[in-house]
Design a protein around this nucleic acid. Structure first.
Length: 896
RNA sequence: GGGAGCAUAGCUCAGUUGGUUUAGAGCAUCUGCCUUACAAGCAGAGGGUCGGGGGUUCGACUCCCUCUACUCCCACCA
């Protein structure tokens, strides 16, 4: 097989990916082998690949390929998520561009557009994952809204409702005015914001009938205007909500505001008279200690309203504009009203002052520019206490391991303070809630049934007293859809149809899955809830390990985002550098749980490594074998050494894999290939004059190459397949993907250590050459003492030296490697003065070292307390040091 | 406000139950090389008082306390 001079990733990658698909190497069916399963964190169906996906999916692919080569029946199940809010928003936007408003469409019409959009854009991301080399079982590609998944969601909803775990409740919820839907508490992200704190005047309303009487208490603060009218000052960040004020609240113990007790005050501009109520909730230290109470638009105010029986005035429309109930600014957007009302209050003399203020504002996780509005409405909730109880033990007991483990605390904290999950969304794109409302009299309690089908619903409705004769067309199905995560949490189960077909062969074989690779940002949204669903429906964990990846940032540490334009397009990167290079670049800098600071230079390093592999292969491939050639000593030794080193390294790699230290495993292999194999091994065995090679070395080298390629394959699947295919005559249908991963074997530590001495010696000799300006071509003579003779041929080969017998002349340069002494014969080529200086310096250092070691050894407490091995080590240091001193002194003497 | 994490070379990070002198790696830097696989390369070199302070110990990058800086998560202070 002819190889190009340069590695060309593009053609190689497409070729082998097609080959893998054609032979269905990614496909898995249950069999007798142990299973290894990963379910993909389903990307948004209309999403496109970004750097976070690259990181996440590269790691998954490494794990899957590694498991596959280790004899597991590996199954990586891909799929996409319908992403209710995000996708619906995209469709709404697209329709808006066509001049169509969502509210002018029926549900059916809207969904038709939505599905069209999904067909058009859906799954692009899966094609992009293929470019990365992902070895997913594409035959199993799923979608959270396809038939089996939807059916599972419905069944689970009905089941949980029947178990009494799902209920309908009137609650203060988080409202996204842009998407016009409620959000769960987890979908609200709080951001620090520079805002204003408006201090408003609330005049006392009843001063004429109920005069303000200063109590003359210490610390009392009265406000009186130039006309002698008393007023309270309320600090608020949201002046636009004053139309909803139904009380003002003070802390009964607040000395500043004692005089307000029992009074009524006037809401500025609005003119409504509201009572002053007392509650210990109010923070005496904040502002003036006077709190405006708007029960309809603030969670705390709602609670206050409940305890104090206050009226609730909802002044907002669902889209965030002011409603009729507000009386003022009707139809204007809340944010515009805030600016306007501030001006109007100022003009009316009702604004005491305005301060700069830092506060936290909740935004919608999906519409990040939209501040959420607390809103009172009736929604569907899932009781979480039960789920927290079943989801906590497996993580605390270690049945599930988090990598890194610090997330256990986060997980536990959340579960221990869990709130009920609001699962309904006012969206059409999603799983429609299987609840049916029955007709009721005006003002009566709502009546509904929950059922999988209209027929079931009708039967259930008819069982209710007074509804015996109800007809199907009188049942009104709930308009709302379920939170996307209500389908995602079933993913590891629903992918194997474990809800619809409990106990089927696939769910039994693939569940629990093995590893989950995801970001810590969805630990609550997804990870925790999958554990809940797993425990609830299969009485078993959904996975054994969770590998949390970090966030991909640019090299300045900024999060990658479209707005900043600091996110490279992964497909461009793949086109420029090759998928293997991108994978390697990403992995090199990603230890579990740490953020990844991405820089192109890492991908360049990946590309360079591909080049290195390619060229090493070309070198080996260029050799021809002379069956009669004898194996040189140096080659024999190098083969033996590398064989042992390979075993040792495989052991290290296995250890790294077992601890999910993926980047360490990769770096270990990287160095083995580049530093050990290329820089030392190949250089040692390279035929000197021509291309002829002895058969023993040649076949050993091919064997090493084979193993190295297999070791690298999970990380860099394409180039390893290309080279492995070229390494020997392969049959159609053969692949490196399905070869056995190299296994650790015993190795000779001493042999490896001796070779290290040889390497160090060679490096020293090269160093001497460089500093003395001696050409590498010029052979030098050396004399060695206390040197492992077995490795001398390698030193001779790589340092271009001859080993001399006997003594060196006076002008030799000596150095120590461990306790071995090497002297280079340099008659007439050296500066004796300089050498003397060097040796003196070395000698001084050795003496200092000796003193420190002896200091330790003469410390009785050290000798008494330290383990024997440590003491023995110190003694060895001492004797070695003495040897070195003797050797240096001998050299000095010879030089003089 | 509560909690967690991190602080080691110019940069990004290892350092796995405390025990090798001179604390490692990759990248970057510097020097010399177009040596017939590879200049996307080869051969070398320099670079750190392990954030500050205190403590435990024969011995601390490692364990404890404290301070400082940064990051993240959680929380209803208007």
């Amino acid at each position: 097989m002819e190889l190009d001079i340069k590695y060309n990733p593009a053609s190689v990658e497409d070729k082998w990916y097609a080959y893998w698909l054609e032979h269905k190497f990614f496909h898995s069916e249950p069999d007798n082998r142990p299973s290894y399963t990963i379910v993909i964190p389903p990307p948004n169906v209309t999403g496109i690949l970004h750097m976070g996906h690259v990181l996440n999916n590269t790691i998954q692919d490494v794990l899957v390929r590694h498991a596959r080569m280790n004899g597991f029946n590996a199954c990586w199940v891909p799929g996409t998520d319908h992403a209710s809010i995000a996708t619906e928003a995209k469709v709404v936007n697209k329709l808006a561009g066509m001049g169509i408003k969502k509210r002018d469409l029926t549900r059916e019409e809207f969904l038709k557009y939505a599905w069209e959009w999904k067909e058009e854009h859906g799954g692009i991301i899966l094609e992009q994952l293929k470019k990365l080399g992902s070895s997913c079982d594409w035959d199993r590609t799923a979608f959270t809204m396809d038939e089996p998944r939807s059916e599972s969601v419905m069944k689970v909803f009905v089941d949980l409702y029947e178990k009494g775990l799902i209920y309908r409740g009137l609650r203060m919820v988080n409202w996204d005015p842009k998407a016009q839907t409620v959000l769960s508490t987890e979908e609200v992200i709080y951001r620090d914001e520079k805002s204003k704190l408006y201090h408003l005047r609330y005049y006392v309303a009843d001063a004429d009938v109920n005069p303000v009487v200063p109590t003359a208490e210490e610390g009392e603060v009265l406000h009186k205007d130039e006309n002698g009218r008393y007023y309270a000052v309320v600090a608020t960040t949201r002046p636009e909500t004053i139309m909803g004020d139904t009380a003002m609240c003070i802390n009964p113990k607040d000395p500043k505001n004692q005089w307000l007790k029992g009074h009524k005050v006037i809401v500025p501009l609005v003119g409504r008279v509201i009572p002053v109520i007392e509650d210990r909730y109010v923070d005496v230290e904040f502002g003036t200690g006077c709190l405006k109470v708007t029960p309809a638009h603030d969670v705390n105010d709602y609670a206050l309203g409940k305890t104090h029986n206050l009226e609730t005035i909802d002044i907002f429309n669902p889209d965030g504009t002011l409603s009729e109930a507000a009386g003022l600014y009707v139809g204007q957007d809340r944010m515009d009203v805030r600016k306007q009302i501030a001006k109007d209050l100022e003009a009316a003399g009702l604004m005491e002052k305005v301060e700069d203020y830092d506060n936290k504002v909740g935004y919608s996780e999906r519409n990040r520019d939209t501040a959420v509005e607390p809103r009172l409405c009736k929604q569907w909730f899932l009781k979480m206490k039960h789920f927290a109880d079943i989801a906590l033990p497996p993580v605390l007991d270690g049945k599930i391991t988090f990598h890194p483990s610090k997330y256990v605390t986060t997980y536990r904290n959340w579960l221990e303070n869990i709130q009920d999950w609001c699962i309904s969304r006012q969206l059409w794109w999603g799983h429609r809630i299987p609840a049916y409302f029955l007709p009721v009299e005006e003002g009566a309690e709502e009546q509904f049934v929950v059922a999988l089908s209209l027929e079931d619903a009708l039967a259930k409705a008819r069982a209710i007293k007074g509804y015996e004769n109800i007809t199907a067309d009188q049942l009104v199905r709930d308009e709302d859809a379920l939170d996307t995560w209500f389908s995602s949490w079933l993913w590891p189960i629903s992918l194997f149809d474990g809800i619809n077909n409990p106990g089927n062969d696939e769910i039994k074989y693939y569940y629990p899955t093995n590893d989950l690779v995801t970001g810590p940002d969805i630990i609550f949204f997804w990870v925790a809830r999958m554990i809940m669903a797993g425990e609830e429906y299969l009485k078993d964990v959904p996975f054994s390990n969770v590998y949390f990846t970090g966030i991909v940032r640019d090299k300045l540490g900024r999060k990658m985002s479209k707005q900043l334009g600091n996110s490279p397009d992964p497909l461009n990167l793949i086109a420029t550098y090759g998928a293997d290079a991108v994978r390697l670049g990403m992995l090199l800098c990603s230890s579990a749980g740490n953020d990844v600071l991405y820089d192109d230079s890492q991908v360049e390093q990946g590309r360079n490594f591909c080049g290195k592999m390619w060229n090493a292969f070309r070198l080996v491939q260029g050799w021809t074998v002379d069956q009669n050639a004898a194996q040189p000593q140096a080659s024999r030794l190098a083969v033996e050494w590398f064989d042992n080193l390979l075993s040792q390294t495989v052991e290290t790699v296995e250890d790294h894999f077992s601890k999910f230290r993926i980047s360490d495993a990769l770096m270990t292999i990287y160095k083995l290939f580049w530093d050990e194999f290329c820089a030392w091994y190949l250089e040692a065995i390279k035929p000197v004059g021509g291309l002829n090679m002895d058969p023993a070395t040649y076949s050993a080298t091919l064997g090493f190459f084979d193993k190295l390629l297999k070791l690298i394959h999970p990380f860099m699947p394409f180039i390893t397949e290309e080279l492995w295919q070229a390494l020997a005559q392969r049959k159609e249908g053969e692949t490196i993907m399905l070869q056995d991963y190299p296994k650790a074997a015993s190795y000779d530590k001493e042999l490896i250590a001796n070779f290290e001495i040889a390497k160090e010696t060679i490096a020293n000799i090269r160093n001497v050459r460089q500093s003395k300006n001696l050409s590498p071509r010029e052979s030098l003579g050396i004399v060695v003492e206390n040197f492992p003779a077995s490795v001398l041929p390698v030193v001779a080969r790589l340092a271009n030296i001859e080993v001399l017998e006997g003594e060196t002349s006076g002008s030799a340069v000596s150095f120590m490697v461990g306790t071995s002494k090497i002297s280079i014969e340099l008659a007439g080529k050296i500066n004796v003065e300089e050498e003397l200086k060097k040796l003196e310096a070395d000698l001084a250092y050795q003496h200092k070292f000796l003193a420190s070691v002896r200091g330790k050894l003469s410390n009785e407490r050290f000798v008494a307390n330290a383990p024997e091995a440590v003491i023995a080590g110190e003694r060895k240091k001492e004797s070695d040091c003495l040897e070195r001193i003797a050797a240096i002194e001998a050299s000095l003497k010879a030089l003089k």
